[in-house]
């Protein structure tokens, strides 16, 4: 079973956001990392890059596949997880903590509230399988 923490918000593209004030920490869900398999490389944006909602901001590459990652919320990148350059496997091992990807200062902090709750995301996963 996928690990779906209660306190996060989720997108249908299998990103999560962890909201702290107007900053959203974004990564991919446990379900997503499991589907991808061993992650070997993450192509990330730079600090200062601005993205609208549902824009591709980078990609996650596993041995077998590449998957684009989308911004679930619009805003400006204020931090990227440089640690993933050396330990991309953190996305597999610990997607919600050390496997986070970017922090975005949200244009509209209300946007995260409109995303799926943990229960809704779980339902969405069950329905799509």
């Amino acid at each position: 079973m996928s690990n779906i923490p209660e306190n996060l918000r989720y997108s249908k593209d299998h990103e999560y956001v962890n909201v702290n004030g107007d900053v959203a920490t974004i990564g991919i869900t446990d379900y997503a990392q499991h589907s991808l398999g061993d992650v070997v490389y993450i192509d990330m944006p730079r600090v200062g890059d601005k993205f609208g909602t549902h824009e591709s901001f980078g990609s996650v590459e596993s041995v077998k596949a590449v998957s684009e990652i989308f911004t679930p919320v619009a805003g400006e990148v204020v931090e990227v997880n440089e640690g993933l350059n050396d330990t991309p496997e953190a996305v597999n091992n610990d997607p919600y903590n050390s496997g986070w990807m970017v922090k975005v200062k949200m244009d509209n902090p209300g946007e995260a509230d409109a995303m799926l709750s943990a229960a809704e995301y779980e339902e969405y996963l069950e329905a799509s399988n």
């Binding site: 398999g37 061993d38 070997v40 041995v63 077998k64």
Partner: peptide, 9 residues
């Protein structure tokens, strides 16, 4: 099977 539980690496 594309992979088992250990993973491709």
């Amino acid at each position: 099977p594309v992979q088992y539980t250990a993973g491709v690496i």
